[in-house]
Design a protein around this nucleic acid. Structure first.
Lengths: 150, 150
DNA sequence: TGACATCGGTTTCATATGAAACTAGTTTTG
DNA sequence: CAAAACTAGTTTCATATGAAACCGATGTCA
């Protein structure tokens, strides 16, 4: 009559956390070994590569990172001459960020690796299952959005 | 002719990380507010509640946490008299851990809350989708298992 | 036996994190 | 106009993390 035991291994938030942590570590290892980039740096490169030129605030919004993380990632990437910073003409608070030529070259190398890693992760799952996974992650993420970054 | 842009928002490892981080924060807030427990402490309570009595090493294995995290969580829980430690008769290295009466009472209160939180998270998803989500997370997690804890 | 590897668990130490304070510049509003 | 409120971004500080060193205790094997 008593309720079944609570089984941590079947608790979805736990499974989600374990899977995400393993993926993050694996990816950080790969990016780290190949390009010397941490995940915050990698995300910054990714959005700059796509959007071309963004203020730091936008990088934060588009990578789900807080502004402190972005600030540190950008400082580091500028130190490596992968990212350039230009002041805004009108608003002295704004700093436009963009990839340098070297940064763009690295970005071009990063993208195929990212796609390959994603592919590798999803082998064993059917296309329909991947679609459901995407939908589910979006649903879960959206439900808890709006509290803050990351 | 050129490849489509790399879109971070659609990159599965990114979506996974964002969803998992939001869930973790949300849950940590709730457990924290209701019971004053961090996630490592909560996980420890959960497996002790289920298995009754475990050495710290087993807690680590069953919660996907490293032994340092477990050691700290246990120290804290013992300080709050939620967990008791007993030496093993044969092996002086082993310490058996179990919930105290107060710990068991807290565990009994934690479980329904955990179920409710899981439920809340999954509203909007059909049962079949949840099943696929479970399968997908297991597949992804397993593929990257064996590297280390968490 | 007596080295030597191994184990359970704790401590140390260097790094990552993010909330809150801060700096500088801009907008609002009375 | 001059507070006051707000924005972009950086710095500070207290906490969380985990790799590696460590401590006893056991196990192994010559």
């Amino acid at each position: 009559m008593s309720k079944p035991d609570f089984v941590l291994e079947e608790f979805l938030p736990y499974r989600l956390s374990v899977a995400a942590n393993r993926v993050s570590r694996h990816f950080a290892d790969r990016y780290g070994a190949a390009f010397g980039l941490s995940i915050p740096e990698w995300r910054t490169m990714a959005v700059l590569g796509r959007f071309g030129r963004l203020p730091a605030r936008e990088i934060a919004a588009r990578t789900a990172m807080d502004k402190v993380k972005v600030s540190r990632a950008v400082t580091l990437l500028m130190g490596r001459r992968l990212v350039l910073r230009k002041a805004d003409r009108g608003d002295a608070r704004l700093q436009w960020l963009e990839l340098s030529a070297a940064g763009a070259r690295m970005h071009a190398a990063i993208v195929p690796m990212a796609r390959a890693l994603e592919e590798e992760l999803l082998t064993g799952l059917e296309a329909a299952e991947v679609a459901v996974l995407r939908r589910a992650l979006a649903s879960i993420g959206d439900r808890l959005a709006g509290q803050g970054p990351d």
